[in-house]
Amino acid sequence: MSQVRYSKDHEYISVEGDVGTIGISEHAQAQLGDVVFVELPAVGDKLAKGAQAAVVESVKAASEVFSPVSGEVVAINSDLESEPSLINEDALGKGWILKLKLSDPAEVTALMDEAAYQDFLKSIA
């Protein structure tokens, strides 16, 4: 089982081999409220670390999802097109947004692990 890591923008990435699955954290989905639409990237898009990868919309807000690492999009969760609520129901599972083929796996280790992220959340509360 891969380890989940987090960015300060509340994205998570879980890595298996050289592919990372990216979505938004449980905390982020709770803050955002009911997700009504997700603007997905295209497979083949090349994303730099910190580049906009997707947009998650609730009724009154549109939040950019930034890629926590760099790489090429190899899959997108097209279930979100008809069921954006998957992000609310299961952010870290069925609510994943995209899969990225990592160009630099070292970028992942620089992100926060679960405990560090929880501390980070406490610090911004």
């Binding site: 639409f37 919309e57 609730s58 009724v59 009154k60 807000a61 549109a62």
Partner: peptide, 11 residues
């Protein structure tokens, strides 16, 4: 409304 200026601003 997320298309609109009062939410999306410059986007």
């Amino acid at each position: 409304s997320t298309r609109e200026q009062h939410i999306r601003r410059e986007k």
